[in-house]
Amino acid sequence: MEVKFQETKISLATGGVKVDKEQPPVLLVHGAGMDRTVWSQQTRYLAHHGFSPMAVDLPGHGKSGGELLSTIPAMADWIADLIGELDMGPVRLVGHSMGSLISLEVAAHHPDAVERIILMGAAAAMPVHPDLLGAAERNEILAPQLMTAWAHGARAHVAGNPTPGLWMRSGCQALLERAADGVIYNDLAACNSYEAGDIAGQIDCPITVIVGSEDKMTPPKATAQLVAGFEEVDLRHLKGVGHMMMIEAPDQIRELMLSALR
C-alpha cells in the first residue's frame, strides 16, 4: 500500500492484504540499499497469522519518494514519526542490518513508539570495508557484488532457496542494483559512522536478537558485543546462515518471529 507521509508517497508491503487495525502492527525495516521486498517471505505469513505487517521502503528506497536520510538517528526519528502517522499504537519493530540500528535508536529514544523489537544482522557498530564504501560512492556495480558475496552464507552461494526456481545470489544483487545512484553509499556511510554508545542500556522493551553463524557483515562476535549491553534479551542462533537470514532461512525466521511477536 501507499501512504502519504510528510508530503511524500511512502510504500509499504502488507502481505497482499489490507491493513487490519484490529491486529497488532508489525513494522519491518530493511537494510542498506535494500527495500521492503527483503521481507517478502515473512509479510504474507504474518498477515495471515494474526498481525498487520508493514514492510516499509525508507525514503528514497524502493517505491518510496522523499530524500535520503543520511544518519541512523535521522532514520529512526523518521520511523518514529511514521509510527505516529499510522495511528495504530506502538508497533512491534523488526529491523535487519541498518534496519536493526534504526530499531535500536527508535526503542531508545522513542520508547512509546515500540512494544518490542526484533533485530537481525545486528551489531553495536557496523564498520564498512573501505573498498566497498568507495565502490558505493562511485556507484559501481562492485558494491552490489561485494554486498551480495558477503551477505550470504556458504550454502546460499550454491543452492537452498526454498522458493522453487529462485536464485538467492542474483536476487540480492538485482535488488541492490535497482537502488538509485547514491542510495547504497548513503546507507553504508550512515552505518559506518554510527556509534551506538551505551544505547543498549537505554532500551526497556523486550528484545529478540537473531544471529546467523555465517554472517560476515555483522559477525556473531560483533552481535555478542551488542547483546552484552542488554539487561535481558531473547537471543536466537541460526546455524549455517549468513546476513540475509530472512531469505536464506525463511521458514526458521518466520517461526522465530511468530513466537517472538506473540
Binding site: 508491503a13 497482499g16 527495500d35 521492503r36 521486498t37 509479510t43 504474507r44 536476487g171 538485482a174 535488488l175
Partner: peptide, 19 residues
C-alpha cells in the same frame, strides 16, 4: 486474494507470477 506481485516480491515479481 488481491496480492500485488510487484509490491510483495519486487524484482522477483515476474518469476512468482509466471509460476
Amino acid at each position: 486474494h488481491g496480492i500485488s506481485f510487484f509490491e510483495e516480491y519486487g524484482h522477483q515479481a515476474l518469476s512468482m507470477r509466471a509460476r
